[in-house]
């Protein structure tokens, strides 16, 4: 999948990746790649500024902690982040329903 197509959804993808868990940067990148079956082709370096942006918005918090013997910055969702994730999921469902109604071939216009 093209990086430009992903960029607009990166915040939502990161929020979903952190849902119910605390992860460090590379673990987030791995989870994103595994979750997409390796289809997300984004420069991994763009994840860190995006995490900072989410932190600024109050949607994630970060802490330095020792993971696997190395000091790492780990991220987790805040309550505001949970609410933002729910809103993103609802918006996405609505969007895909609408688009699928047209592109999926089930629209009345397609039958005429």
């Amino acid at each position: 999948m093209k990086p430009d197509a992903i960029r607009g959804h990166l915040d939502a993808l990161l929020l979903a990746t952190l849902d119910g868990r605390q992860l460090h940067g590379y673990a987030i990148i791995e989870a994103l790649q595994q979750g997409s079956g390796g289809a997300l082709d984004l420069p991994t370096g763009t994840v860190y500024p995006a995490l900072r942006r989410l932190e600024r918005a109050g949607h994630v918090t970060s802490d330095w902690s020792t993971v696997g013997g190395r000091k790492r910055r780990t991220y987790k969702l805040t309550q505001a982040g949970q609410r933002a994730l729910s809103a993103e999921r609802n918006a996405w469902r609505e969007f895909t329903t609408v688009i699928d109604g047209v592109l999926g071939g089930g629209g009345t216009w397609a039958q005429t």
Binding site: P43, G45, P49, R56
Partner: peptide, 20 residues
């Protein structure tokens, strides 16, 4: 290579540093 071209990444990092 996967991390991204240094210029592009620096551009994004710098924006966050400026806001901070």
């Amino acid at each position: 290579e996967e991390f991204g071209p240094v210029r592009e990444i620096a551009h994004e990092y710098q924006a966050e540093l400026a806001v901070a």
